[in-house]
Amino acid sequence: MPLWTLRGLRRGVVTTRYPARPDPSAVLLPTPPVFRPDALTSDLADRLVAVCPSRALGRDGDVLVFDVGACTACGRCRAEAPQAAEDSGEFELAATAREHLIKRIALDGSPR
């Protein structure tokens, strides 16, 4: 019998909370990139869009559109432009609306 059954009977609490402390293995997970808008030129953004295999990156004028939901964390954008993209370390990315996963990143030199 799993231990939590006994604990639950004793305490009257049948379920427990989400991991109380961060999981040590979490740092090893592949995670979507974060981008440095200051290092993102228009040409570089086009190269990143071309190198993305899962249509997670797109251009909308002076904005790089990053669809976190489509990202497979393959690391090709980080390999293409290490100065402009790095690991985010974020893996708890569940969203209650699809739009929450679409991020718009203004390029360097775009009108403020």
């Binding site: 989400y18 991991p19 808008p37 708890e92 990315l93 209650t96 929450h100």
Partner: peptide, 23 residues
């Protein structure tokens, strides 16, 4: 796990506040 807990309302959707841009 986090997604399931978001689905039952025990954790918040935190990705909507991330902008994935540094500096």
């Amino acid at each position: 796990l986090q997604g399931l807990l978001v689905a039952v309302g025990r954790l918040a959707d935190q990705v909507k506040d991330l902008d994935f841009a540094l500096n």
